[in-house]
Design a binder for these strands. Structure first.
Lengths: 133, 133
DNA sequence: ATAAACCTTCCCTGCACGGGAAGGTCAAGG
DNA sequence: CCTTGACCTTCCCGTGCAGGGAAGGTTTAT
């Protein structure tokens, strides 16, 4: 299996496959006589695993960890769960931060006329006009 | 005002101030005889504006746009509002994506025993075991 | 024979900076 | 007067996660 076919079957671009190999996320592919990379079905399974983990926004570092747990038949599920929970916490923090920004922006946008006049509470707030009316 | 003092007063690192100048977010600072950058109070106001916009997660590109609107006395507030609304939409999309991931991860984590045994629905899901029990 | 569709490596781009090297400058103190 | 340390300067590298494209070799089909 050449890289193009693997890319097609996995949905991961050839560029990205080479990148994953370069950072050790995929084992170095064997090469055919012409220097082309040759992949096995196990690489396809690994790539799909990586993709699903990435879809859940795990970092490539976490993915590396998840892969090693996946390949270790003696892993304790507690470790996998702990990794997932840490990730959930990061996501929660991220969501909370975004929601706080969203509230502020929404309030500002509602208070802005949005017409041809230049007055705008959005710019005034960014400029730091602390008007205590 | 040297860059160190400006950094202290604005809360933006000297590194970042030089970077902002290099990408045109701040006007090129004038230089004193020794080559040191010399800043004015207007630069401090600009930096604070940038910081507040960054706190609301506007990209530097958006900040550049906001700055030009801020400096334009004839700006229509509609343009500022539109920019803000586009940003709110991006944030909403981001939040929705994160919440979707969070739901999946939370479900998986709840279904994982989290003990010394290796069985783990998290890894099974990532591996793509489509078991239809 | 030639075109097209592969493949290879290499380096550049983006975002928004931070780190650190190598070197010039300035103020205070011994 | 000289040293020390706190400034400042430019320069290039690293981060995370790839995408873009150049320059070139290979294979397949027509």
């Amino acid at each position: 299996m050449n890289i193009g076919k693997l890319a097609k079957h996995s949905g991961v671009s050839a560029k990205t496959i080479r990148y994953y190999e370069s950072i050790g996320l995929l084992p170095p592919a064997s090469r055919s006589a012409n220097g082309y990379r040759v992949f096995a079905d196990s690489d396809l399974r690994t790539l799909r695993f990586i993709q699903r983990a990435r879809d859940l926004s795990f970092s490539l570092k976490d993915v590396l960890h998840l892969l090693s747990l996946w390949r270790d038949p003696g892993r304790p599920s507690s470790e996998v769960k702990a990794l997932a929970r840490r990730h959930i916490k990061r996501i929660d923090k991220h969501i909370a931060d975004l929601q706080a920004m969203r509230r502020i922006l929404d309030d500002l946008a509602h208070r802005c006329h949005g017409d041809s006049r230049p007055e705008c509470p959005i710019l005034e707030t960014l400029a730091g006009s602390e008007d205590k009316s």
